[in-house]
Amino acid sequence: MTGCVLVIGESVIDIVRRADGAVEEVVGGSPANVALGLARLGVRVRFHTALARDAHGERVGRHLTAAGVEVVVASWSLGATSTALAQIGADGAARYTFDVDWSLPTEPDPGGAAIIHVGSISAFLDPGALVVEQTVSTADQDTLITLDPNIRAALLPDRADAVARFQRLAALADIVKLSDEDAAWLYPGEREEVVVRRLLARGPRLVALTRGSSGALLASRGGNRLVSAPSVRVRDTVGAGDTFMAALIAQVVRGPSVLDELDPHALDAIGTFAVTAAAITVQRAGADVPTEGEVRQALAR
């Protein structure tokens, strides 16, 4: 491991209601899933989140620390841990209803992290989002920033304010990952290729746009690449995009120079690893992200 990643963002308990009526509770929240994914991929990761010392919060803490995530002590700051109702449709897609409190009474400490990852609800929902933006904007020049908006429209403030904040964060980021649904919400009516070029013009060195079962589009100033997703049987899509994000970050933290050589061949290699990791997750229930060994085995097959 060549560096540490600091992930900043929300943790929730996903109350998953499946199409057959079965209900279960699993640890979730996009940043929490990214932190978990990084740890399982062998990356040293610290996670600054917001939890309560209740049953849900303790469950989140145990789940993450068991995988090797260091949950920052200042994360224990809420009165009640946030929850999300995830309704799973017959197609495996998840639709969410949230009960989220996002505040950060203590500003995150980058602590020499090689990469800071932010995004999802925590990048938009104040008062915590103000702290997140401040942390990113004052990070050391040598610290790489990664961003995944993971739009949850029902929890966002005024749309224009949310778009403006996303664009400010994107301008500070080295890597931006978004889904096709995120792109449609942020830039309605624009073709995905246009959205990617628009974001690259703001400053990121790598933009990845995921397309579900259709794979992903990765782009840099050195070119772009469409990467196909493996054909698999989908159980549910919970955590798929977060797995993709974690896989991207893991490849960069092990070799930051990869961002200086983003030709189509490099984009294809990076994207193939990430879509393969995500394809493993969608075959499982909840955000059960794969290990490095599982991804390598899937690639070999």
Rank of each mutant, 00 (worst) to 15 (best):
A19V: 09
L226R: 13
A208H: 11
D148C: 13
E292K: 12
A153C: 02
R197V: 06
V71R: 12
L226E: 02
L147E: 01
D236A: 13
L186C: 08
V118L: 03
D140A: 15
N33G: 12
P230S: 08
D14M: 09
V26A: 13
A173F: 01
T276Y: 05
G37A: 07
D109F: 02
A250C: 08
R301K: 10
V60E: 10
A154Y: 04
S179A: 11
H117M: 12
A300N: 12
D182W: 04
A171L: 12
V26D: 01
D126N: 15
G68I: 00
D236F: 11
V132P: 05
G68Y: 06
D109Q: 14
D140G: 14
L178C: 04
V71N: 10
V195S: 11
V227F: 08
A279Y: 10
I116M: 15
D20T: 05
L36Y: 11
D182V: 05
K177A: 08
D174M: 08
G9F: 09
A246Y: 03
I175W: 00
A247T: 04
G21N: 06
D161S: 15
A287W: 01
A93K: 15
A160C: 07
N150Y: 00
Y187C: 08
E294A: 15
Q87L: 15
R95F: 04
C4P: 02
S214G: 06
D242C: 13
P105E: 09
G271E: 03
G112Q: 09
V45K: 10
L78C: 04
F273M: 05
E25Y: 00
A183S: 13
W102F: 14
A114W: 02
D14R: 04
L130Y: 00
P105Y: 11
E24C: 08
V176A: 10
A164Y: 08
F166T: 02
A39R: 04
V234A: 13
V258W: 07
P256V: 14
A269C: 07
I88E: 05
V258G: 05
D180C: 01
E24K: 07
H56K: 09
R62T: 14
G223S: 13
S75L: 10
Q141G: 15
V71Y: 13
L36N: 01
A184D: 13
V275W: 04
V60I: 14
D91L: 01
A139C: 14
L259M: 07
I116Q: 03
V194F: 07
T49E: 11
V100S: 00
A74E: 15
F166E: 13
A240R: 04
M245W: 11
L38N: 07
A55K: 11
A269I: 11
H48T: 04
G212F: 01
A52E: 13
R165C: 07
E58Y: 08
Q297F: 00
G79E: 14
A22H: 15
A90Q: 14
V132S: 03
E292N: 12
T146S: 15
G189H: 10
A287D: 00
V23D: 05
D140F: 01
S213L: 12
D148R: 02
A139Y: 00
G89W: 05
T146H: 09
G79W: 04
G57L: 08
L41P: 10
T291F: 08
R235G: 05
T243Y: 01
A219N: 02
G215V: 12
